[in-house]
Simulated assay, not measured.
Amino acid sequence: MKYKLLALDLDGTLLSDNGEISPENLSSIEKASKAGTKVIISTGRSYTSAKKFIYQVNSPDPAITYTVAVIQNHEKIIRRITIDNELTGSLLKTFKDMGYYPIIYLTDDNKYFENLGDFKDGFLKFSAGTESNLKKINNLYDRSWDEVIRISVAAGEADIPILHSTLRKKYGRAIKTVDTYFSCWNFYLFEILDKSCSKSIALDFICSMYGIDSSEVITVGDNNNDLDMIRWAGLGAVMKNGLADVLIEADYITEKSNNENGVSEVIEKFIL
């Protein structure tokens, strides 16, 4: 099988725990690109946060950011999906009633919060290396919000099933919920997006631009927000350091972790 497109998650996959792309991974990506394989970055980070790595990879192809709420080719927006304004207001009220503290992400790349609760330290350490334009404000729940891309909550392991269950029961398929575990900072980021958002849907959209079938795609990830693209692709590769629930869905598990050039391993084995 000749694979025509390679989709790479960033944190825990292409990036080491130090937040860097190794020379070995970059070299293999360059070889894959020269061999004709399209290389797509697919990340939960905002474009501002991912931009440095997108430019390092030096791919001319679109990138998927904000857990697929945005697809853009460098500065050009190809597709952007926001949460309905009325739904946003309802979600904020629900979080307030549940005692959770949301972070609101807007299309202008600003992020707003009023409080971060018990996971403030972990989230702020994570944000220092990944997210800019983070702003603390008062009366977050009482404001009217437009152009919301994502609503997130910094939470612990015990909170995740409660959040999923409560919000699915109340909103059903009107929203997309996903959680990502950040082991370096020991907290989960629970995310709400528009119902039409998923990495697989975004990749299918990009593949349709190029006439590529899902069977001709390799996806590489490690976390819960990578699950749907792992299942969707012709070859879903999961990093050795991936979460247990993600590893069991893998077509291939790398022998090397994100700190040992696991992405290069996948490229060398299946593309070059």
Results as ranks from 00 to 15, higher is better:
208 S>V: 01
212 I>E: 09
190 F>E: 09
118 D>E: 14
142 D>L: 14
188 Y>T: 02
142 D>T: 12
203 L>P: 08
166 T>N: 11
182 F>E: 03
206 I>W: 01
199 K>E: 05
103 I>D: 04
121 D>M: 15
151 I>T: 09
203 L>I: 14
177 T>V: 09
135 K>H: 12
175 I>Q: 02
199 K>D: 02
122 G>F: 02
160 I>H: 03
207 C>N: 08
200 S>T: 05
103 I>L: 14
192 I>H: 03
114 E>A: 05
184 C>Y: 05
145 W>Y: 02
171 Y>G: 05
187 F>A: 10
215 S>R: 14
107 T>I: 06
165 S>C: 07
169 K>F: 00
172 G>L: 06
170 K>V: 04
176 K>D: 01
193 L>W: 00
195 K>S: 15
123 F>D: 08
118 D>R: 15
159 D>P: 07
167 L>A: 06
130 T>Q: 10
190 F>S: 13
178 V>C: 10
146 D>G: 02
213 D>Y: 08
196 S>E: 09
140 L>F: 05
207 C>V: 04
112 Y>H: 05
131 E>K: 15
159 D>M: 07
204 D>K: 12
140 L>N: 03
125 K>S: 14
126 F>H: 15
124 L>N: 11
180 T>I: 08
108 D>V: 11
169 K>C: 04
169 K>L: 05
151 I>R: 09
126 F>P: 03
103 I>W: 01
174 A>Q: 12
150 R>V: 10
136 K>L: 11
171 Y>C: 02
213 D>G: 11
188 Y>N: 12
193 L>I: 00
127 S>P: 00
198 S>C: 06
125 K>N: 15
110 N>K: 13
151 I>D: 04
186 N>V: 07
108 D>F: 02
126 F>R: 13
212 I>F: 10
124 L>M: 15
146 D>N: 11
212 I>D: 07
122 G>S: 03
122 G>A: 02
189 L>F: 00
197 C>S: 10
117 G>E: 08
201 I>T: 04
150 R>P: 05
111 K>F: 07
113 F>Q: 04
210 Y>M: 10
165 S>E: 08
180 T>N: 14
177 T>M: 15
137 I>N: 12
109 D>Q: 10
118 D>T: 13
171 Y>D: 00
146 D>R: 10
